[in-house]
Nucleic acid binder design. Structure first.
Length: 283
DNA sequence: AGCACCACCTGTGGGC
DNA sequence: TGCCCACAGGTGGTGC
């Protein structure tokens, strides 16, 4: 589910709500939600820890504590909901309850159970255990020049695969990638090697623009996503291609097409994103 | 390096 | 109406 704008929306809402609070003993309704360390150790370590602030890297939420870091990845259908009551009755698919000592609580719900929690000791463990295969945050840690340098190492990649690759840069997911490529008018199958310097700058600014707008509208709620207060996102009403198969392109009026690229459903306008088609073939 | 495919899970919507 | 299948916002592993 959540891509960078959704996780950032949760981070911004959650930070003022829970900074300074202290965790009581967690309830692991589905213990396998905890990736590291083992469930018992996780609960023991978290109890009594006080929240300093909340950061984010790519789609990972990093809850910095007075000792250690609580890491959350929501994968497809995870939700992190803050409530000032311990009543969990309206929480569907509740996997972990994280109560605070003041009676308020953070609920982790997740229909498909793909999401994971970690408790790790420090920055070193963070990078060795959790963020092993995660590149720089595409929104906060990449200027245009560095972006262009990284592209040089990925000449053979197709644009869609590249943007989805969290090791290249972290944060883009399926929705925002399709929206980004539509904005700059590049075909999802186009290869990095076919871009001239001006086009790589266009790609970079489209990435920034689409993420910024996603954040501005509080993320995209296709089905499951909710912010930390349970609110729906708004960006689903701004999408130009994602989920619009057969509907008219806002620029040219031709029908939006759906295909599979990098194993993911991919929406694009065959007219507006038809550039350099000769570069999309071959290996 | 890059890609195709499977696995992990559960629910929903469309087609028949 | 009801059943079955494809598909869903993500990532990790394997094997070519």
């Amino acid at each position: 589910m959540p891509e960078l704008p959704e996780v950032e929306t949760i981070r911004r809402e959650l930070d003022p709500l829970i900074t300074g609070k202290t965790f009581a003993l967690p309830l692991l309704h589905i213990p396998s939600t905890v990736e590291y360390p083992c469930p018992d150790e996780f609960s023991r370590a978290l109890k009594g820890r006080t929240i300093k602030n909340i950061a984010r890297k790519g789609k990972y939420l990093l809850i910095n504590l007075d000792r250690g870091i609580l890491v959350v990845h929501l994968r497809m259908t995870g939700n992190l909901i803050y409530s000032d009551s311990e009543n969990s009755r309206q929480q569907r698919f509740l996997r972990v309850t994280l109560p605070f000592t003041d009676g308020t609580v953070l609920f982790y719900s997740d229909m498909r159970r793909f999401g994971r929690l970690w408790y790790i000791a420090d920055e070193v463990e963070l990078n060795e255990i959790v963020l092993k295969r995660v590149g720089p945050d595409i929104y906060n840690e990449l200027d245009c020049e560095t972006f262009q340098q990284l592209l040089e190492k990925r000449e053979k990649s197709r644009l869609k695969s590249l943007l989805l690759d969290q090791k290249f840069a972290a944060g883009m997911g399926n929705i925002y990638t399709d929206e980004c490529l539509y904005r700059c008018g590049f075909h999802p199958l186009r290869r990095v090697s076919s871009l001239n310097p001006d086009e790589t700058r266009q790609l970079y600014s489209s990435v920034r623009a689409v993420l910024e707008e996603g954040i501005k509208y509080g993320g995209t709620t296709f089905r499951d996503y909710r912010s930390a207060s349970g609110a729906l996102g708004d960006f689903q009403n701004k999408l130009a291609v994602y989920g619009r198969k057969g509907e008219k392109c806002f620029k040219c009026g031709n029908p939006i097409q759906k295909t599979i690229v990098a194993g993911r459903g991919t929406y694009y306008c065959p007219h507006c994103q038809a550039n350099n088609m000769e570069e999309t073939g071959g290996q």
